[in-house]
């Protein structure tokens, strides 16, 4: 993943260095943001809002679940299967950290 490039002497302090490979991705950030705001979100809602195919969304959810950032709960409502996604404490922290780093990055770009 290429984020923002900088000179060698700046690298240690550059906010781009702290960007999390798992979180720093548009769709996954979108999933975390929606889940954070909604507390709990259904698979279908995420698919509609993020304009993804079911397979594509599933892949992203798997990455986030493996990283311990979300929990996926499958169940039934009547005969209809429903999948609910909740954010873990680790996921909430990862999202807050990532947004903080993005803001720092913007500030750094503006300072130049």
């Amino acid at each position: 993943m290429t984020a923002v490039t900088g000179t060698h002497d700046e690298d240690a302090a550059h906010p781009a260095n702290g960007l999390d490979e798992v979180v720093h991705q548009r769709v996954r950030l979108g999933i975390l943001t929606i889940t954070h705001e909604a507390r709990r979100v259904e698979f279908g809602y995420l698919r509609t809002q993020l304009e993804l195919t079911a397979g594509n969304l599933s892949k992203h959810l798997s990455v986030l679940e493996e990283a311990g950032l979300i929990e996926v709960e499958k169940g039934y409502e009547g005969r209809r299967g429903r999948t609910w996604i909740t954010l873990t404490a680790l996921g909430a922290k990862a999202l807050a950290d990532e947004i903080g780093r993005l803001k720092k990055l913007i500030a750094r770009v503006e300072d130049r």
């Binding site: 993943m1 290429t2 720093h24 548009r26 769709v27 950030l29 993005l102 990055l105 770009v109």
Partner: peptide
Amino acid sequence: MTADSMPAANDPRRLLSELRAL
């Protein structure tokens, strides 16, 4: 929203704006 990672330096602003909209 696409599945791309950030390609350009001015993207953080757009990304944050998209997240706020969501």
